[in-house]
Amino acid sequence: MKLGILVNTDKHPDDVIGITKAALSKGHTVTLFHMDNGTKLLGQPAFAALCSTEGVAMSFCDHSAKGLNVATEGLPADIVCGSQFDNANMNHDCDKVIVL
């Protein structure tokens, strides 16, 4: 399964990480798109570590990050500074999409 996770809040970081790791351990791939308050999680070390894991693709909405004054300089290069186009592609490409 290709699992998509739309991260649009900063309320469930442990669940995002936990579900992603569980999915990877079962042979699935995971695409994460952060927008809105979800961009506030990007600086957390656990997310920085996750982005370079095989089977994970991570991007965020630059418009959201800028609007919320989320610092994105210095984020790992594996976290793609993107737009709603990345979200649209995640929805198109993934077999299942959850929102956290």
Partner: peptide, 23 residues
């Protein structure tokens, strides 16, 4: 309920096996 169930392996299996998922 994600606030109560932290069995992520089980949750992933449910996501994979159900036809639709609504969060």
């Amino acid at each position: 309920n994600i606030n109560e169930n932290k069995n992520y392996g089980e949750i992933v299996d449910l996501i994979a096996s159900n036809d639709r998922v609504i969060s």
